Simulated assay, not measured.
Amino acid sequence: MMQDPPSVPLLVWWVVAVASTAIFLLFFVPLMPNQRYKTRISLAPLAGITFVAVSSLAKSDGLGVALPIYSSAILAFPLGFLGHRNELREKALEMARDGKQSPENGLSQGLQLQLVLVIVVMVAIGAWFSMSS
C-alpha cells in the first residue's frame, strides 16, 4: 500500500522549483564549451516550465501539480549526470568541434543507464508529490 504524499505549501514548491532550476544551470552551464551551447542549455528549464504549464492548463491542474513534476524532472538531469561531468564535458567539446552528434561521441552505456534510471525515479517522485494537490 502506497503512503499518501505530504501536503507541501505552494510557496515551498516555488522555492524548490527555483532551487532546482539554479542547480540545473550551475551544473550544466560551466560544462558547455562555447556561448552557443551555454545558451542552449540555459533554455532547457524554460522549455520544461513551458511544457509543464501548458500541460497543466490543458488538464486544468494547478501549480501544486505542475511545480513538483517540473522540479523533480529538471533536478533529475544534474543527478543523472552526477559523477560523469568529465564525460559530459568531453562529449560537448566533441559535438562543438565536429558540429554534430555521432555514434562515436555518444554517451557511455553506464551513463545512459544511470541517466534513464534517475529520470524515471525522479519523475515518479514528482508525480507522487503532485498527488497531494
Results as ranks from 00 to 15, higher is better:
Arg40Trp: 11
Glu104Phe: 01
Leu93Trp: 11
His84Thr: 07
Ala17Gly: 03
Glu94Gln: 14
Gly83Arg: 04
Leu63His: 12
Phe51Leu: 14
Ser20Val: 00
Leu26Arg: 10
Ala127Phe: 12
Ala17Ile: 11
Asp4Pro: 01
Gln101Trp: 09
Met2His: 10
Val15Gly: 13
Ala44Pro: 01
Val123Phe: 00
Met95Val: 06
Pro9Ala: 12
Ala76Glu: 04
Leu67Gly: 07
Pro5Asp: 11
Leu67Met: 10
Ile125Cys: 00
Pro9Tyr: 10
Gly48Met: 06
Gln35Asp: 07
Ala17Gln: 10
Val16Cys: 08
Leu25Val: 03
Ala124Leu: 08
Ser60His: 09
Thr50Phe: 11
Val29Phe: 03
Ser7Glu: 15
Ala66Leu: 10
Glu94Ala: 13
Ala22Ser: 06
Ala92Trp: 15
Leu107Gly: 03
Arg97His: 10
Ala47Met: 04
Leu31Asn: 11
Asp98Cys: 04
Ser20Asn: 05
Gly48Pro: 07
Leu113Trp: 08
Gln101Glu: 07
Val121Phe: 11
Val120Ile: 14
Asp61Lys: 13
Lys91Val: 13
Gln112Ile: 14
Lys100Gln: 08
Ala73Ser: 09
Met2Lys: 13
Leu11His: 14
Ala124Tyr: 01
Leu111Phe: 06
Val12Glu: 11
Leu63Pro: 12
Gly126Glu: 00
Leu11Asp: 15
Pro78Gly: 13
Phe24Thr: 00
Ala96Gly: 08
Ser42Trp: 08
Pro5Cys: 12
Leu26Tyr: 05
Tyr70Asn: 06
Thr39Trp: 12
Met95Asp: 01
Ala53Gln: 08
Pro6Gln: 06
Thr21Asp: 07
Ala58Lys: 05
Leu115Val: 04
Phe28Asp: 03
Pro78Gln: 14
Leu82Pro: 09
Gly62Gln: 05
Pro5Val: 10
Ser55Thr: 15
Leu111Met: 08
Trp128Ser: 03
Pro68Thr: 15
Ser56Tyr: 08
Ser55Pro: 01
Ile69Gln: 10
Arg40Ser: 15
Pro45Ile: 01
Ala96Arg: 05
Phe129Arg: 07
Arg36Met: 12
Lys59Cys: 04
Ala19Pro: 10
Val118Tyr: 05
Phe129His: 12
Trp14Cys: 13
Val8Asn: 08
Val8Tyr: 05
Ala66Pro: 11
Gln101Phe: 05
Lys100Ser: 05
His84Glu: 06
Val118Asn: 05
Val121Lys: 01
Leu43Lys: 05
Ile49Asp: 01
Ala22Lys: 00
Ser133Glu: 10
Phe28Arg: 02
Gly80Asp: 14
Ala66Asn: 09
Ala19Ser: 11
Leu67Ile: 10
Leu75Tyr: 08
Leu26Trp: 03
Pro9Leu: 06
Ser7Thr: 14
Glu94Gly: 00
Pro6Cys: 09
Gln112Arg: 15
Leu79Arg: 09
Gln112Cys: 12
Gly64Lys: 06
Ser7Asn: 14
Phe24Lys: 02
Leu115Phe: 15
Ile23Asn: 05
Phe24Leu: 03
Thr21Ala: 03
Gln112Tyr: 09
Pro30Lys: 04
Leu63Met: 13
Ala19Lys: 03
Val29Cys: 02
Lys38Gln: 15
Ala73Asn: 05
Pro30Gly: 06
Leu43Asp: 02
Leu115Met: 11
Pro33Ala: 15
Val123Tyr: 00
Glu94Ser: 12
